[in-house]
Design a protein around this nucleic acid. Structure first.
Lengths: 114, 114
DNA sequence: TCATTATATAATCATATGCTTATATAAACA
DNA sequence: TGTTTATATAAGCATATGATTATATAATGA
């Protein structure tokens, strides 16, 4: 599981991956706790396939991992990622997404896939 | 000159900008000292327009500034960029580009636009 | 002024990207 | 087993991106 982060290619690839607003927000949201796909779909008000595809890219890069619980699949930050420290520093520069969730509540949408 | 870095949009835009291998390497190279366009062209072994266009994007984002000296235009990190601290942290994760220059020397190309 | 050198800009093009719609898979449950 | 719910994958499409080629601008020097 060795991996050299000190590599220009690798860093630029990671930046490119997180250079997408949705993916960056997903990482920030997962920073707190795991979330199931349906939560993310509601938060971003986009299609389910769109969220799935973003998650796929994050998973392929090893940044997140999935955990199925019955029908639901929960995603979380992959603690074993060699890039984790780097990712954490990036995330630290993003404001909390709390307000996003608050706004959802105001709109009475709530978040429940159950 | 106020600017809120604590903004998801802004962070993702910056990451996207540096999510390009050439632009990221340019920023790393400029971290040491200013460089003229011709130096960068030689280093990256790409076309002059290509380098110019990358520099244009970095300049438009306020990350670098230019300084004409006769025929030559030298680019350097813009110290007044509100994103500077963020950029510095990103750059810190990239290995020195010293070896790139060393290889150029070996190939006898040297670097001189004069 | 004309030629040369350095750089920027414009136009074109091939590829990458992200979204949408449709469909497949997988679990839960009647 | 059949239906519903959650998620993934595939296909198609519009837009973004980065490179190349050609041309424009600007400074230098004969």
């Amino acid at each position: 599981m060795s991996f050299d982060l000190n590599d220009l290619d690798e860093v630029s690839r990671t930046l490119k991956l997180l250079g997408d607003k949705t993916r960056l927000a997903i990482m920030k949201l997962l920073d707190n706790r795991e979330r199931c796909v349906c939560e993310l779909v509601e938060i971003f008000k986009t299609s389910q396939p769109s969220v799935s595809q973003h998650l796929r890219k994050l998973k392929d890069a090893g940044l997140v991992k999935e955990n199925r619980k019955g029908q639901w699949i929960y995603y979380s930050i992959n603690p074993d990622s060699p890039q984790r420290q780097f990712i954490q520093k990036l995330i630290a520069f993003i404001p909390s997404q709390a307000h996003v969730l608050e706004e959802l509540d105001k709109q009475g949408l709530g978040i429940s896939c159950e």
